[in-house]
Amino acid sequence: MPRPRTILVTGAASGIGAACCRALAGPGTAILVHTRKNAAGAEAVAEAVRAAGGLAEVMLGDIADPALPAALVARAQARFGGLDVVVANAGFADRTPVAALTEAGFAQSMDTVLWAFLRLAQAAMPVLARGEATRLVAISSFVAHVFRTDATIFPATAAAKAGVEALVRALAVEAAASGTTVNAVAPGFTQKDATGHSAMTPAQWDAVRARIPLGRLGTPADVAQAVAYLASPGAGYVTGQVLHVNGGLI
């Protein structure tokens, strides 16, 4: 019996990561659902994967821990027999202005976003090289591209995500011989799950919507559909790209 198409999604207990798990789930798939500490949320996502006909397991840990990326890859191999798709989604956003950034604060963004992606890629690429229609998809962000006086700036996050996109392009070249594709998805303003948009006031969110040509915030499902395409066997001739899912935001 062939092993399932095995997928690792980091930061998958809610939001975009959870939506990616739901979009990728189905018969013949197995998903390792990672979260830092939201075990209940991750278990709910795993149950949704199983309800869709797939296999699922949950693993907790801080993605900034240098040992965790390799441990995630090892767990996927041990539990499901291999690894075919990695979706690197775990991270956080930091609005701290440059003048107020501390070395520790900047390092936290680098560790959680950029270094974690590098470590995950280094651990996963040799395993992906042995898989079928293998894919590495990183979740970037519009904050690495949009710098305006009427927009919130995320200096540390922008630097980390821009670094991720540069690594995506480098990895795409290095992995080409094995057939593994490496891409990124850059979401625009994306609403959270049922928790709403408490990071800004209603008036601020109205101003954001006015800047988006499609007139609405994105949803985790919008982003997940783009990830699902890039992770699919049909996306085998797309690599080294950053796909913007932002409603036309510039």
Rank of each mutant, 00 (worst) to 15 (best):
A42K: 08
A158P: 07
A67K: 12
L249E: 11
M59G: 00
A78Q: 14
A160S: 12
A166G: 13
T181D: 08
T190A: 05
A133F: 12
Q225G: 04
V227Y: 01
R211Q: 15
A224P: 01
L243P: 04
T134K: 02
G131T: 09
E132T: 14
E174L: 09
A44Y: 05
R22K: 11
F154S: 00
A25K: 01
S109C: 15
A123R: 05
V227E: 03
A100D: 15
A44N: 06
S178D: 14
D65V: 11
G81T: 00
P155N: 10
G131Y: 06
L60D: 09
A42W: 05
T35I: 08
G218H: 03
N183T: 10
V245T: 01
L120Y: 03
T239R: 06
V245K: 02
K161D: 10
A48M: 08
H197M: 15
A210G: 06
R22S: 11
H34N: 13
T190W: 03
A18K: 08
N38F: 03
D222T: 02
G91A: 13
L24P: 02
A124Y: 09
R22H: 12
A123W: 03
G81Y: 07
T180V: 15
A18S: 12
T219Y: 04
A90M: 10
L249R: 06
A156L: 10
P66C: 09
R209W: 11
V9I: 12
T152M: 14
L55A: 10
L171C: 04
P69L: 05
A186S: 15
V238Y: 01
V223I: 14
F142R: 14
S109V: 10
M200S: 03
T219D: 03
C21S: 06
V182I: 12
W205I: 13
V58Q: 01
Q77N: 05
A151V: 13
R216E: 08
V127H: 02
S232M: 06
V73M: 02
H145P: 00
A186C: 03
E103T: 10
L128A: 04
A71F: 00
L101K: 00
A160D: 11
E165I: 03
G15Y: 10
A104G: 15
